[in-house]
Design a protein around this nucleic acid. Structure first.
Lengths: 160, 160
DNA sequence: CAATTATATTAAGCATTCTTAACTATTAAG
DNA sequence: CTTAATAGTTAAGAATGCTTAATATAATTG
């Protein structure tokens, strides 16, 4: 069973390599497309969480609900999100992504893919299959740990 | 060989699940420990790139060298980095992480690990071994694609 | 050596994003 | 029904981080 830390170590090393590239790409994408990292982050949160309230977003991002409200103002002005009244409780606003907001998520994902393709080139067919299998497992298990509703991001990269 | 997009898709899905958690953790860690995301990002860059100049950092982070210099000012004031003259070219400053700066990187990594441990619990022994193998492969290949010198982050998580 | 180029710093100004506090509207509780 | 609690917005001010421009120092070029 090797050392008990083997899995954590392997994950950490992978994350370390991956994050460095991914963060740079995200950062670059945000710059080039004129969105801030906060905005990307907020859109990502909403996309994962699904319909949610202003305070939810604030808590998720670790800021006050005032800050969340202001951020949503800008996003709404850019037509990336919509705020509608919750029919069951008219105090709360339901935040949803618009078509455009969803597209931004798609694009930011796509911005990362050039590196993925390069990476794939370096794999043998066996390594490739092994990786696919492992990644699927990790994804499934990872989703089980998530407490949020997961909207289906799966399709984002295939139908574009 | 299934669809040509299978690998990219599997990677994207995993990244999607992982990033959501990881970003939240990073964000939370940064907040709690009083550092900004930019600072964490800069420290990460320096850690990966190894000794580098001010302009290098600016280019790596996509900002002007003035911005990089100002950021380094703060980091130096917090004793997270040191600036020394390059003996071969006294115009350039060599940026290095201090003990404290390295520790911050360690801690930010550690902050992510609780999720990793939960994830590991959900895996069968076979899945666990498969994942380790795949992650190692991806890490190795990923490093080959990197253009930066990689300092050894491997040891960070074991000797702590 | 003189002029140019490269590196880093500093200063001033601007845009973004955060916080707290005040305010409105709605719901829940007594 | 009255009071208290909850959700969201708005406003004012502070903090952060960015840019451009000016400056100092060192290296390179002719």
């Amino acid at each position: 069973m090797s050392q008990p830390e083997t899995f954590i170590l392997a994950l950490n090393q992978w994350i370390t390599v991956f994050m460095h590239r991914s963060m740079q790409n995200m950062h670059r994408y945000a710059k080039e497309s004129g969105y801030s990292m906060s905005q990307i982050f907020a859109l990502n949160f909403i996309h994962h969480r699904g319909r949610c309230g202003v305070t939810d977003l604030g808590e998720g991002m670790g800021v006050s609900n005032a800050a969340a409200s202001q951020m949503l103002d800008k996003l709404a002005h850019q037509e990336m999100i919509e705020r509608t009244e919750d029919p069951t409780d008219r105090r709360v606003k339901q935040i949803t992504l618009t078509e455009k907001g969803t597209q931004v998520i798609k694009d930011s994902l796509f911005a990362r893919q050039s590196w993925f393709r390069e990476l794939e080139q370096l794999l043998s067919e066996e390594e490739r299959q092994l990786s696919i299998s492992a990644l699927k497992t990790l994804t499934d298990k990872g989703k089980q740990l998530g407490l949020y509703e997961t909207t289906n991001i799966t399709q984002l990269n295939s139908n574009n």
